[in-house]
Computed example of a mutant assay.
Amino acid sequence: MIGLDTSHCTAFTELLHDENHPHHVPGATVAVAFPGGSPDIELSRTRVGGFTERLANEFGVTIVDSPARVAEEADAILIEAMDGRVHLPLFREIARYGKPVFIDKPLAVRSEDALAIRELAAAHGVPLMSGSSLRYSGAVAEALEGVGGRDRVIGADCFGPMAIEPSQPGWFWYGIHTVEMLYAAMGPGCVRVTASVSAEHDVAVGEWRDGRIGIARGNRSGNHGFGAAIHGKEGTRFADVSAYAKPFYASLVERIVDFCRTGEAAVPIDETIEIIRFMEAANESRETGKPVLL
């Protein structure tokens, strides 16, 4: 594990190590980790020490002094650093080892970096996966099943909290969770995004090449839960993520373990790169008020 400045580090490790956890995920453990951290992000700077200490003391994780040491000693690698700006440089340090790599959201905060990560992975034969846990919410999965699967979806309206972190532009910090839910429902193929913004809310409207429309709404006041209305050809199903018993991050860890075993990503990297470009286009549109082509 590389980058110990997010609660995902301890939450994922607990799921993997604690056999008594109600949502325990068998098949892997966290053996070695590098703390990292971003000094210009307060949440990173103030939490990396505590998370590192807990991993070492409570779960017996060996703490090392470089990403390369993690890559040398681990069978597969999770880049958990919360700062999307550092994912490409961290990946550059470990790609040559050719081991499966999961990069937590966002894959990058620029589409150029996302494309560079894909190219590096291909050059070194690295199985690569990235994404938000919200896409794997059981509530979203049940709503999709209720409309007959993703092939039957004609549109989706997704919402979630959207705090802003200056170092991670616009949608990239927390809005990505809602955009990932949107893509879980709609699939790839968005061609144009139009965004609106106020002090308390963001809205991004995506137009798909087949004429479908998908909406992502980010809230900074009022409702701080995640949810979606998924529209199918025969009806609409609502997904209330917060009301679902199984934590969505447990479902993500299950996918990560499967990926580390098989090298097959649950989401194609090309879809993840389109999500990065969607948010980049939404950020441009929220500044200009004009539609932006992907």
Score class of each variant (00 low, 15 high):
82 M>Y: 11
189 G>Q: 06
169 P>E: 03
227 G>T: 02
285 S>V: 07
124 H>P: 04
37 G>L: 03
62 T>M: 14
190 C>S: 07
116 A>Q: 08
258 D>F: 11
53 E>S: 15
63 I>H: 01
60 G>H: 03
89 P>T: 14
282 A>P: 01
112 E>A: 13
169 P>V: 06
222 G>V: 10
56 A>I: 12
31 A>L: 13
164 I>W: 07
273 I>T: 04
43 L>F: 13
161 P>G: 06
128 L>F: 03
70 V>I: 06
186 M>A: 04
98 G>M: 03
141 A>M: 10
104 D>K: 08
35 P>M: 06
263 G>M: 15
5 D>F: 04
146 G>H: 02
229 A>W: 15
77 I>K: 06
253 V>G: 02
45 R>F: 08
145 E>Q: 11
259 F>N: 00
177 H>K: 01
256 I>F: 01
199 A>D: 15
60 G>L: 07
158 C>R: 09
98 G>H: 02
81 A>M: 14
294 L>R: 05
294 L>Q: 00
161 P>T: 11
122 A>P: 00
278 F>R: 02
191 V>G: 12
170 G>Y: 03
245 A>R: 14
167 S>L: 15
183 Y>I: 07
204 A>S: 15
70 V>E: 02
28 A>W: 03
208 W>Y: 07
81 A>Q: 11
42 E>Q: 09
250 A>E: 09
118 R>V: 12
30 V>T: 07
294 L>S: 12
75 D>L: 07
104 D>F: 01
262 T>P: 00
130 S>C: 12
108 A>Y: 05
241 V>E: 10
108 A>Q: 00
20 N>P: 09
135 R>V: 12
179 V>T: 00
85 R>N: 10
198 S>C: 15
192 R>P: 08
133 S>D: 08
266 A>E: 09
12 F>T: 05
178 T>E: 00
97 Y>K: 08
24 H>T: 09
16 L>C: 07
122 A>F: 05
207 E>A: 04
63 I>T: 04
64 V>C: 13
253 V>M: 14
12 F>H: 11
30 V>I: 13
78 L>I: 08
65 D>R: 11
181 M>C: 02
164 I>L: 12
122 A>I: 06
6 T>A: 10
280 E>K: 14
238 F>R: 15
77 I>M: 10
161 P>S: 05
71 A>E: 04
251 S>H: 12
4 L>Y: 04
210 D>P: 06
2 I>T: 10
137 S>K: 05
249 Y>C: 15
199 A>G: 12
255 R>G: 08
232 G>E: 02
231 H>I: 12
180 E>Y: 06
243 A>M: 07
190 C>R: 04
43 L>C: 14
110 R>Y: 10
229 A>H: 14
125 G>H: 05
240 D>G: 14
218 G>S: 03
